[in-house]
Amino acid sequence: MTDKEIYKKKIKSNIDEFGYHVTLVTSQTEPRYAYTIGLYQKFNIELVFAGGIFFMKDEILSIFKAVINELKSNENASKVKIKDLGTFSFTKVDRSWSKLMLLGVYDFFDIEEFNAIQIYPDEHHFTLDIPDLSRKFNPSIEKVWKWLKNDLKYPVSKKMMVVTNLDALKGVKITEIMRWEEDEFEMFAGSGDDVKKEEIRVVPFSTLLGIDETLGGVLNLKVGKGFWRGDDSNKWNNWG
Rank of each mutant, 00 (worst) to 15 (best):
T2A: 11
K12S: 06
N14W: 01
Y20H: 04
V22K: 04
L24V: 12
A34Y: 00
T36F: 05
T36D: 00
N44A: 14
I45V: 13
L47Q: 04
V48W: 03
F49T: 06
F54H: 11
F55P: 03
D58S: 14
S62F: 06
F64G: 01
K65A: 11
A66Y: 01
N69Q: 15
S78W: 09
F88T: 05
S89M: 08
T91H: 11
S98F: 02
F109W: 04
D110Q: 14
N115I: 07
I117G: 01
Q118I: 02
T127E: 04
I130F: 07
F137H: 02
F137A: 01
N138G: 03
E142P: 05
K143P: 03
K146E: 11
L148P: 03
V162G: 04
M178N: 11
D183L: 08
F188A: 06
I200P: 08
V203W: 05
S206D: 07
S206W: 04
I211Q: 03
I211Y: 01
I211G: 02
D212S: 13
G216V: 02
V218I: 14
N220T: 15
K225P: 00
K225E: 14
W228Y: 13
W228H: 09
R229L: 03
K235S: 11
W236K: 08
W239C: 09
G240S: 12
